[in-house]
Design a protein around this nucleic acid. Structure first.
Lengths: 210, 210
DNA sequence: TAGATTGTTAATCGATTAACAATC
DNA sequence: TAGATTGTTAATCGATTAACAATC
């Protein structure tokens, strides 16, 4: 197996391609990079390069087979989506993520939520909300590899430590702090306030231009 | 006023700097780029360059004044955070964003939520939830410039159209679809499912390496 | 002074885009 | 054939990192 390095930016685009292709009517059998690019607002060359990385060759005049493409994309993402995922923190954000339907649709396996005070919380989709004390045994039983941190900043490092101790290898961190974790743990920070601030700033810069 | 272009990536880092500096005890008066870099897990040179863009000169042996830096950062972000912000979609995600405390802390002004069916929804922080029919007058009255789309994919384009019609100039889109909007409207897509899938994929690639 | 820090200039890296030849 | 599409090679762009001289 060659290195075939999939860049981080490409990792973020692959789900978009899959999602778009799946959304097309079943009557569409072949599809060109150009049309995908237009639909997703990307460059046609970029799409061609991306798809070439994860799929076989396309045909010159007719483009690619939509079915084949979906299969290849799912194959690339398959092992990714197979991982069991849990959430720490049953506040509004944690609960919203627990019940977010988009994850299921993308084939992501969000199993449960954990909180230091799980009392009286209810999941709309019927997923369980457990006390933190059950985290370790749950993770071992379901072989959970991916954890989401949706607790306030103060509790984030402690949540991270617990996750790492349970063998979690990837963390999606919504708390606005930098987490300390071993190098082999992948951490992706999602700072909502920073994202929104950046958007407002872009708007401001936009105005200057005009 | 020179161009002084603030890059998109820098826009995302500025709030992190501000957040970190504010979190330090008031007894810390001067601070070096190196220590900021370590705390945030960035390169020291990058921090120096970033801060030089938004602040005056630092002093050679002692570093920068924390107070001055905070002021300069707030100044850079000020007009950004001044914009009034509203949310469309009062589902779990929309409500979580409406009540998210991190926005207030960052000085972001999230005013209200709008939904086609606002009945029986309750904000924890007491923010109002209105019917979509009131969107236009509200936006005009409060001079709202920034909107967040937290509705399912099916309703996203229609929500976008409404926002654009109300004069919104920047949209943070949580729906997994590409929005059509005039060129002068800034759109930032936040595809939660794609982000989580990408994280799982990174984990998988990580494993291959070892 | 020596050392920590600064800002700047040049080098590197990674990703995107442009140009083009190949093919059904 | 002509035209739409492909994949690849080279050019460009943007951002990060390295190297270094300057200063308190």
């Amino acid at each position: 197996m060659e290195p075939c390095r999939i860049s981080k930016t490409l990792m973020r685009r692959l789900p978009l391609y899959l999602n778009y292709l799946k959304s097309l009517p079943d009557t569409e059998h072949s599809i060109s990079s150009t049309s995908i690019a237009n639909a997703l607002g990307l460059g046609a060359v970029q799409v061609r390069k991306d798809l070439a990385k994860v799929s076989g060759e396309g045909r010159c005049r007719t483009g690619r087979s939509r079915e084949q493409l979906i299969q290849d994309l799912e194959n690339s993402l398959n092992l990714a989506t197979a991982s069991a995922i849990i959430i720490v923190g049953a506040g509004r954000l944690g609960m919203a993520l627990l019940d977010y339907r988009g994850f299921e649709e993308a084939g992501l396996n969000v199993l449960a939520c954990f909180d230091s005070d799980p009392a009286e919380k209810q999941s709309e989709t019927g997923k369980p909300i457990y006390s933190m004390s059950r985290l370790s045994s749950f993770c071992k039983y379901y072989d959970v590899r991916v954890g989401v941190i949706a607790v306030p900043a103060e509790g984030a490092q402690s949540a991270c430590d617990s996750l790492v101790a349970c063998g979690i290898q990837a963390i999606w961190n919504f708390a606005p702090v930098r987490l300390n974790a071993p190098d082999n743990v992948v951490i992706q920070n999602e700072n909502l306030a920073a994202s929104l601030t950046a958007l407002c700033l872009q708007l401001k810069e936009n105005h200057k231009k005009e």
